[in-house]
Simulated scan of single mutants.
Amino acid sequence: MPHVRFFHLLCFAVLAAFFAASTAQAHHGWAWATDEEFEITGVIQSVRLGNPHGEVTISVDGEDWVVEVGQPWRNDRVGLTREMLSQDREITVHGHRSAKEGERLVKAERVVIDGKDYDLYPDRES
């Protein structure tokens, strides 16, 4: 019977790993966002840069939206710095919004600050 118990434990471990990986992928990939292109302009309220990606909260018509910008290396590659993402600065975001009804979350492909484009995902059309 030890073999049966081991088999059950192994199955449980595999299923747990699968669900943990699929949950992480659902958010950190593009699967959680719509396929439609989306554009929004607002004023930066707060910034949190770092891994797994940065987040910029912007105010749009009195509502806060969270914008996922790139990972630190991706932001650095395009020249998007913390100073550019300073509070009270206007930003236009091109990307994809959350597919979850009512969630004010956008994954940025490209941002525009002071008329300059910062293309975080140059291989994606935005």
Rank of each mutant, 00 (worst) to 15 (best):
D123N: 12
T41H: 03
R104Q: 08
T34H: 08
Q87R: 15
A17N: 07
H3D: 15
V43K: 05
L105T: 08
I91M: 09
P2E: 15
G62T: 02
K116E: 15
G42Y: 02
Q25W: 15
E55Y: 08
H96I: 08
F19V: 14
F12I: 10
R110I: 09
G79V: 07
N51I: 03
K100E: 14
R48F: 07
D64M: 10
I113S: 01
Y118G: 01
E68S: 09
E68F: 06
Y121C: 07
W30M: 03
T57V: 12
H3L: 14
D35C: 01
L49E: 04
E83N: 08
G62D: 00
G42K: 01
R5N: 11
R5E: 15
H53M: 04
R77D: 12
I91H: 00
G115F: 02
V111Y: 01
S86I: 05
I40S: 00
L120A: 03
A16C: 14
D117V: 10
E68V: 13
E37S: 10
R124T: 13
H94A: 10
R74N: 10
T57Y: 03
S98C: 06
F7W: 15
G62F: 00
E103W: 04
V47K: 10
I91K: 00
E36P: 04
V106M: 01
F18R: 11
R5H: 10
T57D: 04
D61N: 14
A20H: 11
H8N: 15
E109Y: 04
T23V: 11
R110A: 12
D119N: 07
S59T: 05
H3A: 15
E39W: 07
G102I: 01
V14N: 11
I113A: 01
E37F: 12
G115T: 00
E109H: 11
V69T: 03
V106W: 03
A99C: 03
T92D: 09
W30S: 10
D117H: 07
V4T: 12
A99E: 13
G70M: 00
E63P: 05
R124C: 07
N75H: 04
W73M: 10
V43A: 08
E68R: 06
F19I: 15
T81G: 01
W73F: 12
T34D: 13
V43H: 01
F19S: 08
F7S: 14
G54N: 06
V69Q: 00
G79S: 06
N75T: 06
G70S: 04
A20P: 05
I113G: 00
V56K: 03
W32D: 09
V14R: 13
Y121I: 07
A31S: 15
V111S: 07
L49Q: 03
A108D: 03
R124H: 11
S22N: 12
W30V: 13
M1D: 15
D61Y: 01
I91C: 05
E101G: 02
R110T: 15
P2A: 14
A21C: 06
D76S: 04
W65D: 00
S22P: 04
S126A: 13
E36T: 09
T57L: 09
D76N: 08
H28N: 11
C11Y: 14
A108Y: 02
Q45P: 00
L85C: 07
V93D: 07
R89L: 02
D123A: 14
